[in-house]
Design a protein around this nucleic acid. Sequence first.
DNA 1: AATGAATGAGGATTCATTCAT
DNA 2: CATGAATGAATCCTCATTCAT
Lengths: 205, 205, 205, 205
Amino acid sequence: MRRASDTAQERRRQIFEAAIAVISEKGFHKATIREIAAAAGLGKGTIYQYIDKKEDLIPLIAEVGISLMSAKISEAASLDAPPEEKLRIAIESQLALFDEHSRLAEVMGGEIERIKHEDSELLTRVFEERYLNALASLVSEAAGRERFSKGESLVIAELIAVMCLLWSHSVLAKKNAGGIEAYETLLEEFVLRGVSGRRKEAENS
Amino acid sequence: MRRASDTAQERRRQIFEAAIAVISEKGFHKATIREIAAAAGLGKGTIYQYIDKKEDLIPLIAEVGISLMSAKISEAASLDAPPEEKLRIAIESQLALFDEHSRLAEVMGGEIERIKHEDSELLTRVFEERYLNALASLVSEAAGRERFSKGESLVIAELIAVMCLLWSHSVLAKKNAGGIEAYETLLEEFVLRGVSGRRKEAENS
Amino acid sequence: MRRASDTAQERRRQIFEAAIAVISEKGFHKATIREIAAAAGLGKGTIYQYIDKKEDLIPLIAEVGISLMSAKISEAASLDAPPEEKLRIAIESQLALFDEHSRLAEVMGGEIERIKHEDSELLTRVFEERYLNALASLVSEAAGRERFSKGESLVIAELIAVMCLLWSHSVLAKKNAGGIEAYETLLEEFVLRGVSGRRKEAENS
Amino acid sequence: MRRASDTAQERRRQIFEAAIAVISEKGFHKATIREIAAAAGLGKGTIYQYIDKKEDLIPLIAEVGISLMSAKISEAASLDAPPEEKLRIAIESQLALFDEHSRLAEVMGGEIERIKHEDSELLTRVFEERYLNALASLVSEAAGRERFSKGESLVIAELIAVMCLLWSHSVLAKKNAGGIEAYETLLEEFVLRGVSGRRKEAENS
DNA sequence: AATGAATGAGGATTCATTCAT
DNA sequence: CATGAATGAATCCTCATTCAT
């Protein structure tokens, strides 16, 4: 026998999954509530027991997305391995995540920043606090403590995220890279060199 | 007295500018034809003398966008400078372009891939042929001819494009980088190291 | 321990009170069953143990309203006083009733006639039989038996009712009269003169 | 050849007429935009070229209604006749108006005060300034200048309006009065006695 | 008896697109 | 060519009502 909260949680999960499925397919605006409801196995009106407005789906998705993404980073960070290896694993796990939940990735990289909603700023902050910060730490460690300022690490973390997300978006990346493993290798090398290589000034000396 | 074609060209330019202005502000779906027409100083119906459907604005914008972007790359490629310097300048000019036409950048990076239209595949091909190829050549040269396969160069070119576009999208990038010059420096170093740095295996030897 | 009928009666009263409270505030259509249920301290579904359709609230309210209104008239009629005084007191008590149950008044004067329901005709008949007739008798007596036909008395009774109800409806009446006592005095004089004054023909003689 | 403004005016009139027809029949909330549009011989969307929200129909109707009603009062006021006769004619013409435009009357007396909209207060003020004031003057004159204060006249004017409107609302009034002429006679006598009859105090002397 | 989750009919509103002027 | 009034398909959202617990 389930408690009510179980059922409610269950419903939220259904809606979340249906939402990313439909939205990733057609984009936020072309995805209709009716479709999302149907995809969740629910009646049109039932959705509105769990959200107030269609827009509310965005934070719902974003929160779960950020959670999944941060979890992978934290996992990598907690490994007992050299910094560069941790960063490599972090990238690997992000790509794997986006490959597995490719639809989530599309929505995260696509609509979320673009749909204005009340929680836009909150989500940006959460994204920075829960995800970027963790990834920036890995970057910082891999680079050697002194190399990047805090801000720089955060920017690089965001660059890494964007490059990982590209895999889900881009037809061309898929075509030109020739497979996710190849893409992964390329990306890891690119990032690790970019992060840990000696500074240009140093090279010139 | 203007020839008809002048006027028509004029109109197209007006519409293009109005379209990116309004679409970057509100997103493709929330931007109404009425608003775009008004922004172009035209009546609502007049737009339809130049496009058949609202969707047609996407290729219209994309073509101009790709032109502007490729032009900068070609310019950089034609310079008489060392390969790494050319690549650096290419990145610099992309960023400058996106900073100047930030609205165009938002539309290019945002809606264009997401709005399905008849010309989607055509645009993808044009993007690769006219833009990515040119940038990939610069990457290839800067890396040393043997390092990357053609596909790898193309992927890296796309990564670079995405990282340049991030500047227009991201509130966090703007906040954390501390200004476009700083972002530019960071990005250039990151890319140049990623591209031209010695391979890891080599480093270990 | 209460008997079931006590509880049922209790529930009906709760619903009645909640209904007039909410309906007078927002109008019949904007008043939702959920709100009325909440105001009655009941769950949304529970209401439907006592009514079949939202519309059924109208006769429920109307019956209670007519009862309250008629009771006051009967009270006045049973007084041992001159006819004109009885009529004056009837008016006074109607106004007092509407002032006390201003929400009931608003609903009675407002929605009840406008919402079509199965019992519309029944209610009209009940209103005439239980309320208008009693008030018409007072009018008749106050006017002198011969002056008005039965129909005329009924019409005048309805006019009186409408004038009493105006107090609850009208912002302007409240503003211009300057208080319920003043309104009462004005109304009583107006009605008594209208009812008992000599006929125009008589005046001209 | 019509000017554009002619057509727009025409459309407004069509919409106004359709709106009172449908709204008087089914009430504001049950009247759908589709029905009103159809009744106006227009497509559903066309209505929204002339109003912003369904609610806007209320002030549209109210303004026309108040105009029609005030016009009749002004007409009566401008006659060369004794004050009591002017008031009698005013009542007569109101009743005739409401009988002719019975649907307008139903809407004026029914929905207008009840539907809250942005212009509620404005309309109340306009109603007082353009209609009640004029009618109150007639009342004042008929009563003899000294009898009623300004506020009292206004209240009586409102009572008169309500009594005239009753004719359109009430099944019972129609049934019991036996025809509009009879209702008119009854109402006129009632009002004139109420207004011009000697005060009670005077009677007692 | 009481409840509230589930439902879908129903309605307001928007907006791309057409077309007569 | 330019225009904007007219249109109705499309969609979000509300809410009365049902029903399993």
